[in-house]
């Protein structure tokens, strides 16, 4: 067996529920393939803006798993993405993304 064929390619089935439960040895190279991303931004005003910028770093399940958050908290989160992580949107766009997040998972 050649070195390359010893590399492990762990392919997932289409439904994403079956995977080879194989481990690599620490004297080998290991390759894995992560399941396709299926989480979706739901429709709403400025959804495209959110999709464009948020997905640079993460899937939208980061948004929908949160408890419903106030505008103040969503604003803090969006500003963190811009100022700490360097998301390339400006302040006006940040406001629009907050507007969108409020329609998706906001509370008064």
């Amino acid at each position: 067996m050649t070195r390359s064929t010893k590399n492990l390619i762990l392919a997932l089935s289409a439904v994403g529920l079956a995977a080879c439960a194989t481990t690599g040895n620490t004297d080998e190279a290991v390759s894995v393939k992560l399941p396709a991303e299926t989480a979706q931004f739901k429709p709403g005003p400025n959804a495209e803006l959110a999709r464009t910028y948020c997905t640079i770093c993460h899937t939208p399940d980061y948004i929908y798993m949160q408890p419903p958050l106030t505008r103040a908290v969503w604003t803090i989160e969006v500003n963190k993405m811009r100022k700490v992580f360097g998301a390339p949107f400006d302040e006006a766009q940040a406001q629009k993304i907050v507007d969108y997040l409020m329609t998706q998972n906001g509370r008064p």
Binding site: L10, L17, C20, L34, P35, E37, T59, P67
Partner: peptide
């Protein structure tokens, strides 16, 4: 048992089906 607590299951590489909180970063 929490608000917005819906989660799917998926088997990631070298893993049995587990509760998927987020897909990327996983």
């Amino acid at each position: 048992p929490i608000a917005n607590g819906q989660r799917g299951f998926a088997a990631y590489p070298q893993k049995r089906p587990l509760i998927v909180m987020t897909q990327r970063p996983v």
